[in-house]
Design a protein around this nucleic acid. Structure first.
Length: 489
RNA sequence: GGCCCGUUCGUCUAUCGGUUAGGACACAGGGUUUUCAACCCUGCAAGAGGAGUUCGAUUCUCCUACGGGCUGCCA
């Protein structure tokens, strides 16, 4: 049974790098009929906030990364917040101290800081001096009992080579001498990261740890701890980092990085999921657009790339549009509606109106990549506020005015919605009467209707505006007759 | 500084030691749509450098360079 976990710390909004780790964990677990466990690593009391945890859960749910065990949902190996697991940490801390594998350290933070800067100045390896290493254990225990503050350090073995197999990187090894006696429990009694992780991964029966490459060096320390506690070591897979365009660590200044921002900017969860899965992994064939299900069956962790990947917003946009286009008009209408409301467009959620929104959004998806941009595009259906250049340009051209007047007389007495066929017939007649054809014929019409010389095709624009104008939408959609009428009068 | 990891088109990637090094995004050109976008076609563009192993290296080994990570009583 494969059990994997995603273990974020609630110290900020979840970003795409973390989300990708979650995606890979999810895919691996589903591919292997395993369990995906969510664990909140909130041992940093100062930076952890409930607000971040709530947000994180919301983002994960939005992305479609439902977990089998975790906070809210529960499970057999909980609790799933490290802050609620102190009994376990205490138990194993005692065990390590009793067996002499760990010891109390009375060094102050200031003292250690000084040691460190001195070592740095001398160009030496920065490692704990081992000052409290050989203190008498009984004596130490007494001091702690008397209320003296002490952290607990793990007695790191000397002269050993630590190696483990990594599904992404194959065999990696490290000399234990380079690891100092690490703190496993802080002087405030809260376990340190490396310790808590080992206890939890064991107790939660995690057998595959998939996480970012930034934890690779921690893994050596954790392997030491697994061994000292006689715990079976899980398998490991360390994913490369996600970088920004300038190949430095992806951060705010590269653009949106938090998952909630992508949601607000109109990205589809399935598109983000799809894109994230392709960062550092490929199915081996040339497929790129995947549904979650398809990704699960195609996924193979052995094919995950070792090198870091740059986050490409352009490609994400493209994938997003591909997913938008795969949706039915109905689904699309439902998705775009909240974005329209956000922009002050109001309407009743009746089937007819929702269908119209879906249709219009579908047309706009030829031009735009996100739901947000598509919803912005709706403004052109309810405005005739064109630039002065456009208005004057039309009025100055005799042939343009001729075309528009003729077209107006064709549709004047027809009530909306006027079908595009009617317009086409009208155009034929105009051509016969006036001799104007081709670009001379179409261009003024497109300008009069859309105010732009580039944009939506007439055959798409006219039906949208005609059908929209008979529906209850605020601000109202302006139909063809009104648009042309405004210009010629 | 020390240690660990990495390096194929601008970007994401494919390649079981033998390929004209393939695909996608982006970009450029063309076609189609009486415009633009979409769509279709075409093009542009890569094995960091140097040794070695081999009949033959992008692929295996080593060195160098470059990039990243860690080096916390953060995770």
């Amino acid at each position: 049974m494969k059990r994997v976990r995603f273990a974020p710390s609630p110290t900020g909004f979840i970003h795409v790098g973390n989300a990708r780790t979650a995606v890979f964990n999810y895919l691996y677990s589903k591919k292997n009929n395993g369990k995906f466990i969510l664990r909140i690593e909130d041992t940093d009391l100062e930076r952890s906030k409930k607000e971040y945890e709530d947000n994180l859960i919301k983002d994960l749910e939005w992305l479609g990364l439902e977990w089998d065990e975790g906070p809210v949902k529960g499970g057999d190996t909980g609790p799933y917040r490290q802050s609620e697991r102190n009994v376990y940490y205490d138990k194993y801390k005692e065990q390590l101290i009793e067996s002499g594998k760990a010891y109390y350290c009375f060094c102050s933070v200031e003292e250690l800081e000084k040691e460190k800067t001195e070592a740095k100045a001398k160009g030496e390896n920065i490692i704990y001096s081992g000052k409290c290493r050989d203190l008498d254990p009984e004596e130490s225990k007494k001091r702690v009992k008397n209320g003296e503050k002490a952290s607990v350090r793990f007695r790191a073995p000397k002269g050993k080579t630590i190696s483990f197999n990594d599904l992404v990187r194959d065999d990696v090894s490290f000399e234990s001498d380079l690891i100092g006696d690490m703190i496993i429990v802080r002087s405030n009694g809260i376990p340190a990261y490396n310790f808590a992780v080992v206890i939890d991964d064991f107790l939660m029966k995690i057998d595959m740890v998939i996480r970012g490459e930034d934890h690779l060096s921690n893994t050596f320390k954790q392997v030491l701890l697994f061994n000292a506690l006689d715990f079976q070591t899980p398998g490991f897979a360390h994913l490369s980092m996600v970088m920004g365009e300038d190949s430095t660590k992806l951060s705010k200044r590269h653009g949106s990085v938090s998952i909630s921002e992508f949601r607000k900017n109109g990205y589809l969860p399935e598109a983000l999921f799809n894109y994230l899965s392709l960062l550092g992994w490929s199915p081996g064939d040339n497929r790129e657009i995947f549904l979650k299900k398809e990704l699960v069956s195609a996924f193979n962790i052995k094919k995950v790339s070792k090198s870091s990947a740059i986050f490409d917003y352009q490609k994400l946009k493209w994938i997003n549009r591909e997913h938008i286009r795969k949706m039915s008009k109905k689904e699309l209408g439902l998705l775009v509606a909240p974005f329209l409301e956000e922009k002050g467009i109001s309407f009743k959620k009746e089937p007819e109106i929702m269908e119209w929104i879906g249709q219009a959004a579908g047309v706009l998806s030829n031009y735009e990549y996100t739901l947000e941009d598509i919803s912005s595009g709706f403004s052109q259906f309810s405005t005739t506020e064109f630039s002065k250049e456009v208005n004057d340009g039309l009025k100055r051209s005799d042939s343009a005015m001729t075309v528009l007047k003729l077209l107006y007389s064709e549709i004047e007495n027809i009530s909306s919605p006027v079908s595009f066929e009617v317009v086409l017939n009208g155009l034929k007649k105009i051509q016969e009467k006036s001799g104007i054809k081709g670009k001379e014929l179409y261009h003024p019409i497109r300008l009069a209707l859309t105010g732009k010389d580039k944009g939506i095709e007439l055959k798409d624009f006219i039906p949208v505006v005609e059908e929209g104008s008979v529906r209850e939408i605020k601000p109202p959609i302006i139909n063809m007759k009104e648009r042309i009428g405004k210009i010629i009068k």
